[in-house]
Nucleic acid binder design. Sequence first.
DNA 1: AACCAGTTTAGAACAATTCAAAAGAGATTC
DNA 2: GAATCTCTTTTGAATTGTTCTAAACTGGTT
Lengths: 144, 144
Amino acid sequence: MSAMRKKSGKEHMETTGAKVRAAGLRPTRQRIALAGLLFRNEDRHVTAEALHEEAAKAGVRVSLATVYNTLHQFTQAGLLNEVVVDSGCAYFDTNIGEHQHFYVEENGELIDIPGETISVSNVPAPPKGMAVDRVDVVVRIKRA
Amino acid sequence: MSAMRKKSGKEHMETTGAKVRAAGLRPTRQRIALAGLLFRNEDRHVTAEALHEEAAKAGVRVSLATVYNTLHQFTQAGLLNEVVVDSGCAYFDTNIGEHQHFYVEENGELIDIPGETISVSNVPAPPKGMAVDRVDVVVRIKRA
DNA sequence: AACCAGTTTAGAACAATTCAAAAGAGATTC
DNA sequence: GAATCTCTTTTGAATTGTTCTAAACTGGTT
Ligand SMILES: [Mn+2]
Ligand SMILES: [Mn+2]
Ligand SMILES: [Zn+2]
Ligand SMILES: [Zn+2]
């Protein structure tokens, strides 16, 4: 589902519950609420802290520990990707397709670069006994 | 200086002091000692903690705070590069030329990929008012 | 309704890093 | 070479992001 139709409120709730269940996770209040926030809009990049605040503002009471647990569970279930751009802060990405990022060092913002855009070639073979897990490209940008 | 001759002990000390001074930093005991450890061998990737231990083993008494300070000062002076591969731990690289890395997630090891090897093309223009600072490629590998 | 396994929570614990204030040491001047 | 000035180092506390623990809770089942 590359281009998905905008869903109505109720429809979104159901979709969300199904998504959590399909991931093999019990659809609890907090998981459904967090999935609701995460998957409601276009692709997004969140930090645990940020999602926790967002939940609070949306009137959803969830502990920070649960936000961390949920982000990791969603990641393990393949619903999210983790993006490493900053030693000191973990980002989670709702865009799980192959793609790359601009990273605005100044304010910590992540911007998607569609997967077909950048091409990486001549990646050498890894040492014996090792296999490539994934190739990450981060384009660090700053004010011109 | 791509391929440098191996230096004798004393020669290395002098070179080291000069390097620190050339970077615009006062050649203090601890900065010279740390530079000595860092730039003595081939290119290396260190963590503050690791360098601190290495110094201790070499009989050099330096505080961890100083190791952090020094690594950052050397980085700012262009003697080191910081490599981001793990949210939670900062790596510093004595190879300041353009190159890429294999990252062995299992044990946190970094392996250089020479700069001419991988080619990255079609990097899109950054948003208005922004400029590319640098493009990082990390090839995450794991046991096959 | 009772029950159980899985989940959430608050708060303590941790790891990596930074900060603050006082003591120490290069560089410069006499 | 002593006085002096500024930059640096040190120690330990403080911060930040994240994980752990043990007790309370809840979704799903009987
Ligand atoms: Mn953050
Ligand atoms: Mn480390
Ligand atoms: Zn993304
Ligand atoms: Zn390197």
